[in-house]
Write a protein that binds this DNA or RNA. Structure first.
Lengths: 197, 197
DNA sequence: CCTACCGATCGGTAGG
DNA sequence: CCTACCGATCGGTAGG
């Protein structure tokens, strides 16, 4: 029993640190977060963190990858509940917004500012994000869009929308699902009924 | 004549430094840009810049304000050429994208990452940006949108779209005006002809 | 997990 | 505009 507690404490400790780090990164950005900040929030000195992690870079990349892994799973599950292409898109948007706007989700909101991250970190982040975006590539491919809309631009517009939502949404004033519904309302254009004048 | 050259050199020197700083800030962000970086690009040591500027904070705020001033003027001029609300919106989008995507425009592209900037700087930036966004508030107010679209969300979606365009647009692959046209195509929803089934 | 420290870099200044 | 420097802070390490 005491051995389990020790093991749990050690294993849980690393995860705890990761979650704390994720929240501070999300709030203050990569450069704005010092190892001493993370240590303070975890109740230890900055140097002590290096028994659990290899470097600040590695910590950040690991967090980013874990966040996208979790997001992919949640979105895939949400999509499966719908058959129609617009319903699937709205489910994906709502799930992603849920993640981006939940302050407890210790997840990805740092997905954006690639500019303040070291070069080697940036290539790892971009590579992972590109794979993530494949999911939306197929969602957009299934939409019955009018021919004059470029699907590549359309997908980028939609994704940058979802990524930057955290910058302007006032928490509590509107639910993520309502915002997702509004986004889909704006992005919805059907090709099926061109009124034969 | 030599006195004019001296005066021009001194006045032009400050402007030259501002333009150089703007480009580096735009590329590497506030925290990622050191005064020594700016100095190097200007051909002087970092400390020497302080004869022209008061502080890094003040320099950044001044650049931000000047960029928004210029953008407001250009957009206002572009809008004046159009009478129909959608044409005015597209002209505004095209002008703003021109500015955001032009690497020579030494303008605002740092408008976003408010997170890596000191507190007092952030409030100054946000305050100025809010005034800038009034321009789009009136543009959106004039649109004949369907009733089920929330104009407040609509405006925020559009603005975050324009702000983040620089993150995904591959320079040279598509002209800013074409992208603006696509954006307006996606955002265009008319209320005028609800087909009486 | 702490103490004690490293080399590097930062924004900024004095004095010329 | 430079030299020479300041105090602060950074990521990270050795040794216990």
């Amino acid at each position: 029993m005491s051995r389990m507690n020790e093991g749990e404490a050690a294993g849980g400790r690393r995860r705890q640190i990761m979650e704390i780090a994720a929240q501070i990164f999300a709030r203050k950005g990569y450069r704005g977060t010092s190892m001493r900040d993370i240590g303070e929030a975890a109740g230890v000195l900055g140097g002590s963190l290096y028994h659990h992690i290899k470097s600040k870079d590695a910590l950040f990349v690991e967090l980013h990858h874990a966040a996208l892994d979790a997001a992919e799973q949640q979105i895939a599950a949400a999509i499966d509940c719908h058959d129609d292409p617009w319903g699937r898109l709205e489910a994906a948007c709502a799930t992603l917004l849920d993640i981006q706007l939940d302050p407890h989700s210790l997840t990805m909101p740092m997905m954006n500012d690639f500019r303040e991250v070291p070069e080697r970190v940036r290539v790892a982040l971009i590579d992972r994000r590109d794979r993530f975006e494949q999911l939306f590539r197929s969602l957009v491919a299934d939409l019955p869009l009018p021919a004059e809309i470029d699907r590549s631009i359309y997908r980028n517009l939609l994704l940058s929308q979802l990524n930057s939502a955290a910058d302007w949404v006032r928490p509590g004033r509107m639910m993520p699902h309502d915002i997702a519904a509004q986004i889909v309302r704006v992005f919805r254009h059907d090709d099926d009924d061109p009124p034969p004048a």
